[in-house]
Structure formats: structure tokens, C-alpha cells
Amino acid sequence: MLELILETLIKAAIIVGLPLGSIPIILVVERRGAGFMQKRLGPNRVGPFGLMQPLADVFKFLFKEEVEPSHVRPFFYTIAPLIALVVAVMPLAVIPVAAPFDFNGKTIFPEVFHTDLGIFFAFAVSALGSYGILVAGWASNNKFSMLGALRACAQMVSYELSLTTAIVAMIFLYGSNDIHSIVAEQTGYWFGFLPKWGFFVQPVAAVLFLVGIFAESNRLPFDLAEGESELVAGYHIEYSSIKFAIFFMAEYVHMLVLSGLFIILFFGGYSLLPGMELLVGDSALMLTIMQVLSFIIKISLMVWFFVWVRWTLPRFRYDQLMMLGWERLLPLGIFNLIITVLVVHFRNH
């Protein structure tokens, strides 16, 4: 019993601490990346290459005055950032970074909470993500934040539909909801060189999912919730100091979680990158290390992709956004699902 609690605590500390710890790195990548793409320098004064910039930001947030305007609804105003962060962090518990391995004669699952329904659980919890934003917008009692929250909420639920069709198609294809068996399905190669990733089987579902995660995490080109030119800052307009920082963190964690799910479903999760087998050899320890490394590399590429898209595409207009969600992606997802099911069925019979 004690051992179990200890094991869970250690895993929780690592798996929650790692993403939270990587947020400063993502921030640097994002700001320096923006500079790189726009042919300017970006923050480069604090520390070597501006690497200490996030630390400076954290201290700035901590020492800023925490303004609580007189018109807000205090209780909900205070808990809104916490809701956002907790809901964003929770799905991390089911995302594994490596295959189950033996340690001291015991099989250890490299995720905090092992269940057969990992994808399903993560998806259900991240569906609660709109509450943080909705509560923040309403509690701020400000027209801009209210509109931002409403927009964010309507947008998130709209794209969740096409996301669900993609997930159903993938689960049907793999015939399982267990993350480890989904990854096992994707290990290996076709014709000796092409990895058996879900992306090559279901490119349509992959695109749907990719668009969906941009909309769910409120990132450009879908960051209508905070469209500066119309809503100033959207739902967190009345937030300052560390509360604002918490919203920021929640957004990045949400992004990481969704990228993780995307990688698991379409890019083989922690399965080795091509060529890594040569490094592994027979050692089981090396295998686990390489799997973690592959996962981290894939996640980093996804984060870079997020940054890349953010500074490349302009923001959508709201009616275009809703049209894209309801009239393009949703029917695409439904037909993709029907075709997938029929093809799989007739291949079997």
C-alpha cells in the first residue's frame, strides 16, 4: 500500500513537474521563434541567448500588484484560474512516456494513472476545459471578457465535435482504447522504412484532430477568445499578476496534453523514431530511455509546429471560424468515419 502511494507520488511529481518545468522553455522558444520568423532578435538580454527571460517574467508576475477590481464576483474570480490549471493538468496523468518496464521485478506503468480507457479519460477531462474560461469571463463582469468567454466556449464545443469523429475513427481502427496497445499497433514499419503511424492510415482524421487541437487550446489562428483588435484581451482582461500567469500556464499545459494525445493517436506515441533501434541494442534500460527521448522529441516538434503556425497564419474571422467548424470539418469527419468503418468491415469480410 505504502509502496503504491510512493510510486504514484513519484510518478505524479515527474509527470506533472516535467511539463510545468518545460513551460519556461516553450516560452523562450515561442518568443525567440517569433523573432526568428519576423527577422528580429526577440528577448536576448536576460542570461545567455535570453534563456533566463522566463525566470525574470515569473519574478515580475510575483511582484506585480494583484488588482482585484471592485466589480468582479470575488469567489469565482479567484477560483477561475485554478479551475483552468487543474483541468489542464489532470489529463497528463494518463499519458505514458514509455512502454511499461520492469523495475525490481515489478512492472511499472510510466503514467500516473493506468487505465484501459486512457484516451477516453483524457478527452473527457479536457472537455471540462471550457469551464475555466467561462467562469473567468463571467466573474470578471466585463463586456470584453464576457464576449471572449462566450466565443471561446462556443468555439471549443464546435471543434470538439470534429475532434470526436476523428477519435472514434482511430479507436475503431485500433480496436482498443488502451494507450499502450494503440502505440503497440503503431510500432514497426511498412515496406521496411515507413513507420506504421496512424497518420499514414488516416490523414484526414489527423488533419481534423490537428485543427481541433488548435481550436481547443485557443491558439492562433483560432485565438478568437482574445482577439486583441476587437476584445483587447478577452476573458483574462481583468486579471493581473500571478492569476494571469496561471491562465497562461494552463493554456500551455493544455497545448502539451493535446499534442501528446495527437502524437499517441497519429505518430506512434513513444514508439521509437526511425533509426533509433540501432542505438538500443538488447538493453531494456536503453529501450525505455530511447522511448522517453522519442516522445520528448515528438512533443518538441509539435510545440515548434504550434509556434510556427502562430506566426505564419493570420487570425480567422469569427463567422469563418464557426463555418469552418460546422460546415466543413464536421461533415468531413462524419464521412471519414463512415468510410473508415466500411473499408475496415469489407476488408475483414
Binding site: 477516453f120 478527452f123 472537455a127 464545443v157
Partner: peptide, 15 residues
């Protein structure tokens, strides 16, 4: 039952 609790959260609480 993880399944039922996930459904409960997804449909009842989430939607």
C-alpha cells in the same frame, strides 16, 4: 468503472 465515470464527466459534466 472508468468507462462510466468518463461518460459521466464527458456528457453530463462537460456538456
Amino acid at each position: 468503472s472508468v468507462f462510466l465515470s468518463a461518460i459521466q464527466v464527458l456528457v453530463n459534466a462537460g456538456a
